[in-house]
Amino acid sequence: MTAFSPKLSPGERLSTILRHIAMTLLLLLFLAPLIWLLITAFKPYTELFISPPTILPADATLENFSKGWAIGGGKGITDSLIVSSISTAFCLILGYPAAYALARRFPPHGQLSFTILSLRMMPPIVPVIGFYLMFQKFSLFDTYSGLILIYTFMNLPLVIWLLSEFLRQIPKSYEEAARIDGAPWYRLFWDILLPLSKPGILTAGILSMIFAWNEFLFALVLTGEKVITLPKALASFFLFQQPNWGQLGAIGIVAIGPLLIISFYMQRALIRSFSVELGGR
């Protein structure tokens, strides 16, 4: 049970080592599809369609990355970045004040926060027909602003909830002290609350970026030729009979690369974002 104990018997030490070897093997097996994706991204075209396949590329190449960028990966990354970052900015701007009011003036796990969160439980296929008809009406179809609007809607409940949970942990005494000193509300906000809630804003912002970055159904239905986010770009290549998997693999790796790096810092928050509010009520 001790995390650091120099007095392990040789038998115990061996069993610990064996356990770690077993875990590593299990992990490699588990991640095999992703490892294969990574390998494929470095294979030249001629090596893709061999049966049985080579395990490591005999003639590794970086060409897939440049070609993948040219055939639509670049456009996908740009569009995904535009849509996810702007929608995240809107989520934070709309969500922060709401989260503050929720944290300070409403009880935790109350009816209001539950109602806001229940929007997040809805499967995206349910509102998509209504969104599509709305998009036709207001000529939002295939526009950046349309998709940004939807992603803001999609992530706002989560952002409000995460931020309000965070703000609840900041003691009220800071604000009360500032108010006694006669600080106006914007000073209170700018000089006290905002610096204190930076980690919360970062967490909520990154999660909102990730969910917008990964989203597929809304992008598929609500955009056409002009706006092509990364998941949509990837999916569109499957219309071809024999897509160049190497190039798609390269696009896929670029699509998940940033997330892999972020994930190690964000995991607890991410899990919480999926665990919304069920417990403890």
Binding site: A32, P33, W36, N214, P231, I256, F274
Partner: peptide, 27 residues
């Protein structure tokens, strides 16, 4: 490390499995 798949776009996950399970060229 086990949690990696949860982070990823389902489209990329589907694509990775598509390659992995390809009846002819898959490993």
């Amino acid at each position: 490390l086990f949690l990696i798949p949860m982070m990823l776009a389902p489209i990329v996950v589907g694509f990775a499995w598509n390659l992995f399970l390809n009846p002819i060229y898959g490993p």
